[in-house]
């Protein structure tokens, strides 16, 4: 091991290990979240959910993954090939980049960048682009409508999403995720900023394209929306990205409002995952609680409620910081 480190340098070894770790977290997270989603959905509908494969159906997700891997990759005839092939790849870039800056524990972070939160949100705007690529490239009316809806949706949620985080950034004077967590040693920021937390969470659910904001895939209207024409492993990539996005949104909420890896007795990483998955559970819960909104409802709600309220909160926070 030491020889390898000497040849290629410490930084490279660290980055490679970090990237492998990120991939492991992405895949394991998807396995856990699909199981949680199916089990929770099952119980909420008075079913049992998966139970045949492994104890409590725990290995179901792996079986599904192998099935998807074994499937024939079908390319419809009339698709616009470069766009169609590019879309599942592009949707995966923001996922990988975002995981790099997330601090799982005080020592467990691939890279602490001083504009960390901006990296996450700058690259997450790419996912809209990829939906657009998929929708346009598929040459299918359902895909196109789904893609256009996701673009319209993006206009609604992106602004409150960032504005809700700004009061926290005001308070700790840094864009680095680690600094934000360290600033919450005593009290979690959700105590100071309950309303931005709610706004962030609502906008975050919209960002992940989950019910009640799943306009882009709306299975009862648009077949499967933007990924109608995708099958096999390409579909799996969209699936992976969706669940990773849920994790990222919940992780950022945990870092900014719930104290990240801070917590008593248990090690930090366990606290981090407990908080993150508690939020992910709420997102799954949403799916069986709220009906889908129309996109004009979403736009109205976002521009007339979320944005003014978050601006007001920002103003109050700024004023309080100046006075205190």
């Amino acid at each position: 091991m030491n020889e390898i480190i000497n040849i290629v340098g410490k930084e490279v070894v660290r980055n490679v290990i970090g990237l492998v770790g990120v991939l492991v977290v992405v895949v394991v997270n998807v396995l856990i979240l699909t199981w949680v989603e199916r089990k929770v959905s099952g119980h909420m509908q008075r079913r049992i959910g998966p139970k045949e494969v492994g104890p409590f159906g725990l290995i179901q997700a792996i079986a599904d993954g192998i099935k998807l891997l074994g499937k024939d990759i079908i390319t419809p005839e009339d698709v616009k090939k470069p766009l169609y092939f590019l879309a599942p790849i592009v949707i995966f870039i923001p996922v990988l980049v975002s995981f790099v800056v997330i601090p799982f524990d005080s020592f467990l972070q691939v890279k602490d960048i001083n504009v960390g939160i901006l990296v996450i949100f700058a690259f997450s705007s790419l996912s809209v682009l990829s939906l657009l690529l998929a929708g346009w490239g598929s040459n299918n009316k359902y895909s196109l409508i789904g893609a256009m809806r996701s673009v319209a949706q993006n206009i609604a949620y992106e602004i409150p999403l960032l504005l809700a985080l700004l009061p926290v950034i005001f308070m700790c004077n840094s864009f680095s995720l680690k600094d934000v967590v360290e600033a919450q040693k005593g009290i979690w920021f959700v105590v100071y900023h309950p309303i931005p937390f709610l706004i962030y969470f609502i906008a975050g659910v919209a960002e992940t394209n989950r019910t009640p904001f799943d306009l882009a895939e709306a299975e009862s209207e648009l077949v499967a929306g933007f990924h109608t024409e995708y099958s096999g492993m390409r579909f799996a990539l969209f699936f992976l990205a969706e669940y990773s996005n849920i994790f990222i949104i919940c992780a950022v909420a945990t870092i900014f409002f719930l104290g990240g890896y801070q917590g008593p007795i248990l090690p930090g990483i366990i606290w981090f995952f407990i908080k993150t998955y508690a939020l992910a559970f709420i997102i799954v819960w949403f799916r069986w609680t709220f009906p889908r909104v129309r996109f004009d409802q979403l736009l109205n709600f976002s521009w007339k409620v979320l944005i003014p309220v978050s601006f007001l909160w920002l103003l109050i926070t700024g004023g309080m910081l100046k006075i205190l």
Binding site: L118, A122, S125, L126
Partner: peptide
């Protein structure tokens, strides 16, 4: 910011 504003 370039990515966030121009791409996003």
């Amino acid at each position: 910011m370039q990515i966030l504003i121009y791409v996003g």
